[in-house]
Design a protein around this nucleic acid. Sequence first.
DNA 1: CTGAAAGCGCTTACAG
DNA 2: CTGAAAGCGCTTACAG
Lengths: 351, 351
Amino acid sequence: MRKSISLKEIAQIAGVSHSTVSRALNNSLLISREMAEQIHKIAAERGYRPNRNARSLVTQRSMAVGCVVTNIADPFIGEVMRGVEEIASQEDYSIILTHSGGNPDREMKAVRSLCERTVDGVIVVASRVGGAYVPYLLERQVPIVLVNNQHPSDFVHSVTIANYEAARAVILHLGELGHKHIAYIGDQFGGQSNAERHAGYRAALKEMGIRYAPKLVVSGESTPASGEHAMSKLLTLPTPPTAIFCYDDITALGAYRTLQRFGLRIPHDISIAGFDGLFFAEFLQPSLTTVEQPMHEMGELAMKLLLELLSTSRKDASPIKTQIIVHGKLVVRDSTASPRPKSLKAEHPSS
Amino acid sequence: MRKSISLKEIAQIAGVSHSTVSRALNNSLLISREMAEQIHKIAAERGYRPNRNARSLVTQRSMAVGCVVTNIADPFIGEVMRGVEEIASQEDYSIILTHSGGNPDREMKAVRSLCERTVDGVIVVASRVGGAYVPYLLERQVPIVLVNNQHPSDFVHSVTIANYEAARAVILHLGELGHKHIAYIGDQFGGQSNAERHAGYRAALKEMGIRYAPKLVVSGESTPASGEHAMSKLLTLPTPPTAIFCYDDITALGAYRTLQRFGLRIPHDISIAGFDGLFFAEFLQPSLTTVEQPMHEMGELAMKLLLELLSTSRKDASPIKTQIIVHGKLVVRDSTASPRPKSLKAEHPSS
DNA sequence: CTGAAAGCGCTTACAG
DNA sequence: CTGAAAGCGCTTACAG
């Protein structure tokens, strides 16, 4: 890259010291109005752009935040990142994007790279691997904000969806429709989110006086393929469930496909509910009942929280752990309905 | 952020000059084996991380590339970015992510910000706004690679899908099925991509001896809502089309919904084809016939091309314009089939 | 093989 | 209000 014009060169043109130019361009009050104007004019003419690397070297603030994500093509993560970016660019912060690919080694490498870039803070979105980076960053006093973190740890700030509550709402909804056999397809790598959704599922069953059946809980891994497989497994049960709560919409995609293959109709034969509220959910056939996460807002909140951490003095702020809890919204669509009465179900009077 | 250990401090501990430490850590050959080992040991113990900002200040290379995208939550863009990131991290480059939000001013602001960060190069993915940044970057000699650029310009390197060819393949496919009334729902902001897909559509019609009917071409804007609206419009035509080629899968989503609402069945009543091959396409009901773009690969190619531009000496490389064309793959699924014969269609013998 | 020096492009006390 | 100086954390000719 060609060296673009520097402070020094502007100083030469203006016939002043580069300190003066720096002050003028940073709108220091210590500069005469005319001088400031003249310098601004020259800078504009030459298309001067301050070198942020040089600046952060002396200010010890890079105005950059690092984001580590499992997979930027994941729709949930993409929406969160959009929110993060929104606030960041508003505040003149840059985003350095790194992938962990769900691999702990790569995640650690990404974090180290962010440190070399001297990011002011780090946001980790839905990491599915362990939090080895947490002590690393803590030691370097780089503030961290986790979004839907799967591996809770103390002294770390976070934005999280109320999983328990939302899962409970889904199950109560299914219960109200009359379902008694409700299955849960979890995510074996879902960590805390999965544990909480499962707990909410279980609690709601209990509230409704439905006995918890371990056989109705199978685990996927947040892919359509795993959803297909889990669904098949549930269908082979002696008494298959009449409703399925899926860990997320992606898993539900797989469940849909299996049901189609088996010639079962949603919601006529089986009800399905998802989680996340990804954009395609309402376009599925039938449209998917799900819990909408305020993904964009979660990203915004995470970035705002980080900004706040960066603005407060480090000493007194560090022991406080901020946990922002956002609430999902149950959106009932066409994939959930009352189960068919037993009598009608027995089309072949074999009993 | 706390100042982490510097070269100077390591030098103090090792009792050598910081130049020596720098050489040792950069694996210079000018260093004795023992010295190098000792220094590496100290650096490892203290968790030394070089400050990249300082380094790039002197080397004039930041080892960072800027990416400007319309919307990181867009599934196409997400996949491309994943490819970009893959190669970048492999080569120890960092990614600075910026949003244009489809707004020319914001796009320009993003590019300026990237320049302040002294990125070595810029990748622009599917920008839908004008290319005001192109001369800006060119002047600063920052190499640019565009992915599916909508606004062609000379002296800019690019990775592009063969739109014409792919669109033609879709239409020939529909024609082979027996369709004579084939509509195109375009993207009014789709720039070059839209123009090329439209041209491919038109050419294929001609090849098959089907007369081009301007009424069968309506424009959307790459959103489900616009797809719905465009589809409704087509249905009100005196002779509605029997097959629809949509600008992309997102538009097709809207078309699906309108057809459902009208009680029309895909592909029984109308065939639908999309473009992109987004992950949800195969899970729609019916699964969507579409053109798969090698999105991930396109990202990889873009980053590789940029890397190449960065490694060649600037002078002789600049006049060459590299255009990488990738090919889409028509994936025929259940949303396209032969049109119902006229005779059967007339269920009510009104004629 | 190693060190002292200069410098990358900035900011910011310290004098005046 | 302005300038000279120091320094942020590095790299790299230039001597030795």
